[in-house]
């Protein structure tokens, strides 16, 4: 009862806080406290949203195209990071040879922030899809490798002993015990990798792009249109949340029964 009331109260407060924010924001612009050239009102952002649904001007593409471009770049880089990072991390966790060979290189590259790769990526791949995919791949790779590696390392040693008494080979232990027991950590890595990829994508598009949400934001700045900038920011946030939810759903399906 008390718990219910508290939850209800919290819900009401969060609605109040959001409404107040937008109302305050609208008023600040309406009364000219912040000049409209620097800050667009929520109403203007919504109008811009509606306009951009069907109009390619002034930045050259409708909103849908920007979203899809960004998604395509992000998902391509992200998937490549998973396909390479997870097996590499898992193998590093179990096979001494892989750990010995791959880990030093990995540890050397790891401290370089992915956005620092942007200039080189533009040199190598230009401002098209490939360059951004590279940046996203580099950002997503690190959490994929680390979490898979730690996940395998954290396998309960009793499970491994147990399997040995059943005559399981090294490979069977890795496949049947270490990998399933690492899965929750691997999925944790996917979430972190997604956040990292999405951040890197926007950074890359801000610098070099001709479509995409980051490009929309940059165009807003160049054209002195704060409503366009804010629309771009909101779309980046929204899309990120939606992908996060989808991954969460997949995770819940796949790791049923594990670690409960």
């Amino acid at each position: 009862m008390g718990e219910n009331k508290k939850n209800m109260f919290l819900k009401v407060l969060s609605v109040v806080s959001i409404v107040a924010l937008f109302l305050g924001w609208q008023l600040v612009v309406d009364f000219g406290i912040v000049p409209n050239t620097l800050l667009a009102s929520p109403k203007q952002v919504i109008e811009m949203f509606i306009y951009k649904i069907s109009n390619a001007n002034p930045d050259g593409a409708v909103l849908w195209v920007h979203v899809m471009t960004s998604l395509q770049e992000a998902l391509t880089g992200y998937l490549l990071a998973l396909v390479i990072g997870i097996p590499l991390g898992l193998a590093m966790g179990w096979f001494v040879v892989v750990e010995g060979l791959a880990r030093p290189i990995f540890e050397m590259i790891r401290p370089i922030p992915p956005v620092a790769w942007i200039p080189l990526a533009i040199f190598w791949f230009g401002i098209g899809l490939a360059g951004k995919v590279f940046i996203i791949w580099a950002s997503g790779l690190v959490p994929c490798v680390i979490n898979s590696f730690v996940g395998v390392k954290m396998t309960n040693p009793v499970f491994i002993k147990m399997a040995k008494t059943y005559g399981a080979t090294d490979w069977e232990i890795f496949k049947d015990i270490c990998i399933p027991s690492a899965l929750p950590m691997v999925f944790g890595g996917l979430q972190v990798a997604l956040a990292a990829s999405w951040t890197a994508l926007v950074a890359a598009e801000l610098i070099a792009a001709d479509t995409g949400l980051g490009f929309l934001i940059t165009m807003g700045r160049r054209l002195l249109k704060p409503d366009m900038i804010i629309l771009g920011m909101m779309m980046v946030g929204l899309t990120g949340v939606i992908i996060g939810i989808i991954i969460d759903k997949i995770e819940k399906r796949l790791v049923a029964g594990v670690n409960k």
Binding site: N156, F159, Y166, P180, G257
Partner: peptide, 20 residues
């Protein structure tokens, strides 16, 4: 080395949680 002739039941529960 380990020998399948020997069955080992450990002190702690060692069932694999992801297996039925």
């Amino acid at each position: 080395g380990p020998n399948p002739v020997i069955g080992y039941v450990f002190q702690r529960y060692t069932l694999f949680p992801w297996k039925t």
